[in-house]
Amino acid sequence: MRMKVLVILVLVLCTIPFYAQEKASKVDLGFSYGIGNEFKNRNYTFTNQSYKVQFYYVVKQTKNFKYALVLQPEINFASHQLLNIYFVEPDYPDYIAKRERYTKLKDVKEYVLNLGFLVRKPVFKSASIYVLGSIGPMITDTETERLSKGFAFSDVLAVGFTFRFKGVTLDVRPNIRHVSNGGLQKTNAGYTTKNIDFGISFSL
Protein backbone atom coordinates (compact mmCIF):
# COMPACT_ATOMS: atom_id res chain seq x y z
CA MET A 1 0.00 0.00 0.00
CA ARG A 2 2.76 2.45 0.93
CA MET A 3 4.69 1.65 -2.26
CA LYS A 4 1.53 2.21 -4.33
CA VAL A 5 1.10 5.64 -2.75
CA LEU A 6 4.72 6.50 -3.55
CA VAL A 7 4.44 5.33 -7.19
CA ILE A 8 1.18 7.20 -7.79
CA LEU A 9 2.52 10.47 -6.39
CA VAL A 10 5.73 10.21 -8.42
CA LEU A 11 3.74 9.54 -11.60
CA VAL A 12 1.48 12.52 -10.95
CA LEU A 13 4.45 14.81 -10.41
CA CYS A 14 6.17 13.48 -13.51
CA THR A 15 3.29 14.77 -15.63
CA ILE A 16 4.79 18.22 -15.01
CA PRO A 17 7.22 18.68 -17.92
CA PHE A 18 10.89 18.21 -17.20
CA TYR A 19 11.71 20.45 -20.14
CA ALA A 20 10.24 23.53 -18.47
CA GLN A 21 12.52 26.50 -19.01
CA GLU A 22 14.23 28.04 -16.02
CA LYS A 23 12.31 31.12 -14.95
CA ALA A 24 11.85 33.30 -11.92
CA SER A 25 8.90 31.30 -10.60
CA LYS A 26 7.66 32.05 -7.11
CA VAL A 27 5.88 28.72 -6.71
CA ASP A 28 7.26 25.15 -6.62
CA LEU A 29 5.29 21.92 -6.18
CA GLY A 30 6.97 18.73 -5.05
CA PHE A 31 6.96 15.44 -3.18
CA SER A 32 9.29 13.87 -0.63
CA TYR A 33 9.84 10.52 1.02
CA GLY A 34 11.48 10.32 4.44
CA ILE A 35 12.72 7.71 6.90
CA GLY A 36 13.76 8.07 10.53
CA ASN A 37 14.03 6.60 13.99
CA GLU A 38 14.33 7.59 17.63
CA PHE A 39 17.47 8.88 19.28
CA LYS A 40 19.03 6.04 21.27
CA ASN A 41 17.29 5.67 24.64
CA ARG A 42 16.20 2.95 27.06
CA ASN A 43 12.48 3.78 27.11
CA TYR A 44 11.08 3.21 23.62
CA THR A 45 11.61 2.55 19.91
CA PHE A 46 10.04 4.61 17.15
CA THR A 47 10.70 4.21 13.41
CA ASN A 48 8.84 6.03 10.66
CA GLN A 49 8.30 6.53 6.95
CA SER A 50 6.80 9.78 5.73
CA TYR A 51 5.23 10.93 2.47
CA LYS A 52 4.84 14.67 1.89
CA VAL A 53 3.37 16.85 -0.80
CA GLN A 54 5.26 20.17 -0.74
CA PHE A 55 4.25 23.68 -1.83
CA TYR A 56 6.88 26.44 -1.79
CA TYR A 57 6.10 30.13 -2.23
CA VAL A 58 8.96 32.65 -2.43
CA VAL A 59 8.11 35.77 -0.40
CA LYS A 60 11.42 37.60 -0.85
CA GLN A 61 14.65 37.23 -2.80
CA THR A 62 17.90 39.13 -2.40
CA LYS A 63 21.31 38.74 -4.00
CA ASN A 64 22.43 36.20 -1.39
CA PHE A 65 19.25 34.66 0.06
CA LYS A 66 15.80 33.45 -0.85
CA TYR A 67 12.95 33.32 1.69
CA ALA A 68 9.97 31.03 1.21
CA LEU A 69 6.82 29.81 2.93
CA VAL A 70 6.32 26.05 2.89
CA LEU A 71 3.11 24.02 3.14
CA GLN A 72 3.55 20.25 3.59
CA PRO A 73 0.59 17.88 3.97
CA GLU A 74 2.07 14.63 5.29
CA ILE A 75 1.14 11.09 6.16
CA ASN A 76 3.51 9.22 8.44
CA PHE A 77 3.61 5.46 8.98
CA ALA A 78 5.40 4.59 12.23
CA SER A 79 6.16 1.63 14.48
CA HIS A 80 6.46 2.13 18.22
CA GLN A 81 7.24 -0.09 21.21
CA LEU A 82 7.70 0.58 24.92
CA LEU A 83 10.98 -0.90 26.18
CA ASN A 84 11.08 0.27 29.79
CA ILE A 85 7.97 -1.00 31.59
CA TYR A 86 8.73 1.25 34.57
CA PHE A 87 7.98 4.29 32.40
CA VAL A 88 4.35 3.42 33.20
CA GLU A 89 4.37 4.14 36.92
CA PRO A 90 2.24 2.36 39.55
CA ASP A 91 0.08 5.45 40.12
CA TYR A 92 -1.33 5.04 36.57
CA PRO A 93 -4.82 3.51 36.62
CA ASP A 94 -4.60 -0.16 35.59
CA TYR A 95 -0.84 0.20 35.21
CA ILE A 96 -0.16 -3.55 34.93
CA ALA A 97 -2.55 -3.91 31.98
CA LYS A 98 -1.13 -0.77 30.38
CA ARG A 99 2.43 -2.05 30.68
CA GLU A 100 1.41 -5.25 28.93
CA ARG A 101 -0.47 -3.36 26.20
CA TYR A 102 2.17 -0.71 25.58
CA THR A 103 5.11 -3.13 25.33
CA LYS A 104 3.57 -4.71 22.23
CA LEU A 105 4.84 -3.37 18.90
CA LYS A 106 2.31 -0.93 17.46
CA ASP A 107 1.67 0.58 14.05
CA VAL A 108 0.92 4.29 14.27
CA LYS A 109 -0.44 6.56 11.54
CA GLU A 110 0.01 10.33 11.74
CA TYR A 111 -1.72 12.89 9.54
CA VAL A 112 0.08 16.24 9.56
CA LEU A 113 -0.18 19.69 7.99
CA ASN A 114 3.30 21.24 8.33
CA LEU A 115 3.59 25.04 8.00
CA GLY A 116 7.14 26.28 7.63
CA PHE A 117 9.58 29.02 6.74
CA LEU A 118 12.69 28.39 4.63
CA VAL A 119 15.87 30.44 4.15
CA ARG A 120 17.94 29.40 1.13
CA LYS A 121 21.54 30.32 0.26
CA PRO A 122 22.90 29.60 -3.27
CA VAL A 123 26.36 28.02 -3.22
CA PHE A 124 26.73 27.37 -6.97
CA LYS A 125 24.69 28.37 -9.99
CA SER A 126 22.48 25.27 -9.71
CA ALA A 127 22.93 24.29 -6.06
CA SER A 128 21.90 25.71 -2.71
CA ILE A 129 21.75 24.99 0.99
CA TYR A 130 18.89 25.96 3.28
CA VAL A 131 17.44 25.90 6.77
CA LEU A 132 13.78 25.03 7.32
CA GLY A 133 11.67 25.27 10.47
CA SER A 134 8.07 24.08 10.58
CA ILE A 135 5.26 23.37 12.99
CA GLY A 136 1.87 21.92 12.26
CA PRO A 137 -1.26 20.31 13.64
CA MET A 138 -1.35 16.54 13.62
CA ILE A 139 -3.78 13.70 14.25
CA THR A 140 -2.42 10.37 15.51
CA ASP A 141 -4.60 7.26 15.38
CA THR A 142 -2.99 5.25 18.21
CA GLU A 143 -2.61 5.81 21.95
CA THR A 144 0.78 4.99 23.44
CA GLU A 145 2.44 5.48 26.82
CA ARG A 146 4.08 8.64 25.41
CA LEU A 147 1.26 10.31 23.51
CA SER A 148 -2.52 10.33 23.66
CA LYS A 149 -4.53 9.44 20.60
CA GLY A 150 -5.85 12.40 18.62
CA PHE A 151 -4.61 15.96 18.28
CA ALA A 152 -0.93 16.87 18.60
CA PHE A 153 1.78 19.01 16.99
CA SER A 154 4.74 18.12 14.77
CA ASP A 155 7.83 20.37 15.03
CA VAL A 156 10.68 20.03 12.53
CA LEU A 157 14.09 21.68 12.23
CA ALA A 158 15.94 20.79 9.01
CA VAL A 159 18.96 21.65 6.92
CA GLY A 160 19.06 20.68 3.28
CA PHE A 161 20.93 20.66 0.00
CA THR A 162 19.29 21.08 -3.42
CA PHE A 163 20.40 20.78 -7.02
CA ARG A 164 18.27 22.54 -9.65
CA PHE A 165 18.18 21.99 -13.43
CA LYS A 166 15.65 23.56 -15.81
CA GLY A 167 12.96 24.04 -13.21
CA VAL A 168 13.43 20.64 -11.55
CA THR A 169 14.91 20.52 -8.02
CA LEU A 170 16.35 17.45 -6.28
CA ASP A 171 16.46 17.75 -2.50
CA VAL A 172 18.19 15.97 0.42
CA ARG A 173 17.05 17.08 3.88
CA PRO A 174 18.37 15.75 7.23
CA ASN A 175 16.09 16.87 10.05
CA ILE A 176 15.05 16.50 13.66
CA ARG A 177 11.37 16.06 14.47
CA HIS A 178 9.52 16.32 17.79
CA VAL A 179 5.91 15.31 18.30
CA SER A 180 3.83 16.28 21.35
CA ASN A 181 0.42 17.72 22.14
CA GLY A 182 1.50 20.80 24.09
CA GLY A 183 -0.19 19.56 27.26
CA LEU A 184 -3.64 19.59 25.64
CA GLN A 185 -4.10 15.93 26.58
CA LYS A 186 -2.97 13.91 29.58
CA THR A 187 -0.17 11.88 27.97
CA ASN A 188 2.44 14.18 26.45
CA ALA A 189 5.99 12.80 26.67
CA GLY A 190 6.08 12.71 22.88
CA TYR A 191 8.72 11.40 20.48
CA THR A 192 11.91 12.89 19.09
CA THR A 193 13.40 11.37 15.94
CA LYS A 194 16.28 11.93 13.53
CA ASN A 195 15.24 11.68 9.89
CA ILE A 196 16.31 12.20 6.31
CA ASP A 197 13.99 13.21 3.46
CA PHE A 198 14.55 12.85 -0.29
CA GLY A 199 12.48 15.11 -2.51
CA ILE A 200 11.80 16.39 -5.99
CA SER A 201 9.97 19.58 -6.92
CA PHE A 202 9.02 21.54 -10.04
CA SER A 203 8.60 25.23 -10.82
CA LEU A 204 5.03 26.21 -11.74
Rank of each mutant, 00 (worst) to 15 (best):
S25A: 00
K26Q: 05
I176E: 13
K66F: 08
T169M: 00
T103I: 13
N195V: 05
G133K: 09
A78N: 13
E22T: 00
V119G: 10
G150R: 10
L184F: 06
N195T: 03
A127C: 12
V27E: 00
K66Y: 06
L13G: 15
K125I: 04
V88L: 06
G183L: 07
T47S: 15
H80C: 14
V179G: 02
G182W: 05
R101D: 14
D171T: 07
E89T: 04
M138G: 04
Y51G: 00
Y56W: 04
I176Q: 11
M3A: 07
H178A: 10
G183K: 05
E100R: 02
N188T: 02
Q21H: 02
F65P: 05
Y86L: 03
K4D: 00
I139E: 09
A68Y: 00
D91W: 10
F153K: 09
N76P: 02
K121W: 15
L157V: 14
F153N: 11
V12T: 15
F165R: 06
N64Y: 15
F46Q: 11
G136M: 10
G160W: 06
V179D: 03
A97G: 06
F31H: 02
R99I: 01
Y102K: 03
A158K: 00
I85L: 10
E100D: 09
Y95N: 03
I35L: 05
F165C: 04
Y86Q: 10
G190R: 03
K186Y: 12
K194F: 14
F124C: 10
K63Y: 01
V88S: 08
K63F: 11
F31L: 14
F77R: 06
N41R: 14
A20F: 07
A24I: 00
T47P: 08
I16H: 15
K23C: 01
K125Y: 13
I75Y: 07
N43C: 01
E145C: 13
I135K: 06
P93T: 11
